[in-house]
Design a protein around this nucleic acid. Structure first.
Lengths: 138, 138
DNA sequence: CACGAATGTTTGGGCTATCAAACTTTCAAA
DNA sequence: TTTGAAAGTTTGATAGCCCAAACATTCGTG
């Protein structure tokens, strides 16, 4: 049995998330844009794309465009979901400013396992439903 | 002006937190115990202690005991506080099991800046005070 | 089509943090 | 007081991820 001890590094997860974003907006991701979005240099991207390709998470050919494999897309979407959710929690509920919320979400999204995240989600759902909550207080 | 761009790595913060724990329990920290608590080898500890010493966060002499400097202790206590708070949130409110709560708290404690953490704290305080909350639901 | 700019890749280097294993120091028991 | 085991240190390697800069490829424009 393929015991899922294959956790991706934070960095690789960030690559997947970034690629998904680009792919969504422009159907395809380019090395240059990945680099720009992640604030790293083009040269660094190549090596990481190879790693992701070896894990069958992206379709990569030298000098070609990059797309996520189904497997990669699934992971990327999970991470994206967490990011959106956490950022929303931080900015809407905690009233953290947008930029900080984004940064912090980007860190936190790698910290929780699936189960913990789901519990967090349900918790926030409950909070939002609470009729006694005053939306502009915090 | 000494602009505080000196953020510690996650790892160094973990060392400080671990040393504080040992120091509290046994007045002094030993390389061997740090290694055991952090699940790393003794050899790895030495180098990191030197780094922390260079930053004046621990008192380190070869073959000697280790203690936190005031500066180091202050940081360690902040991190410990976050850990306790986050673990409590995860286990008491989200009902995450103890071990997972501990692990997750250990990751999350490095993700938030001071301000965000304080907002999180206040938020939980509010939740706890909410008279409509059912303690055993989640 | 050809050529230069844009994009992508490679190479060599650096930094952090870890390990294994050899080596040194300390300390307590005989 | 000697001495061997425990604790600490050093050294050389490795892995991950990044950069700079030289090099290769691609592509749009003239």
């Amino acid at each position: 049995m393929t015991t899922k001890k294959n956790r991706l590094s934070q960095s690789l997860e960030d690559y997947l998330e970034t690629i998904l974003g680009l792919q969504t907006k422009k159907t395809v991701a380019r090395s240059k844009d990945i680099a720009a979005k992640m604030n790293i240099k083009r040269g660094s991207v190549t090596g990481m794309l190879k790693k992701l390709a070896k894990k069958e998470l992206v379709n990569y050919e030298p000098y070609g465009y990059v797309t996520l494999t189904p497997k990669g897309k699934k992971i990327a979407q999970q991470i994206e979901l967490r990011h959106i959710f956490l950022k929303d929690f931080l900015s809407r509920i905690l009233k953290v400013d947008e930029a900080t919320a984004d940064e912090t979400a980007c860190q936190m999204e790698h910290a929780m396992d699936k189960n913990t995240f789901e519990k967090f989600q349900n918790f926030v759902k409950t909070i939002d439903a609470c009729p006694h909550r005053r939306p502009d207080k915090n």
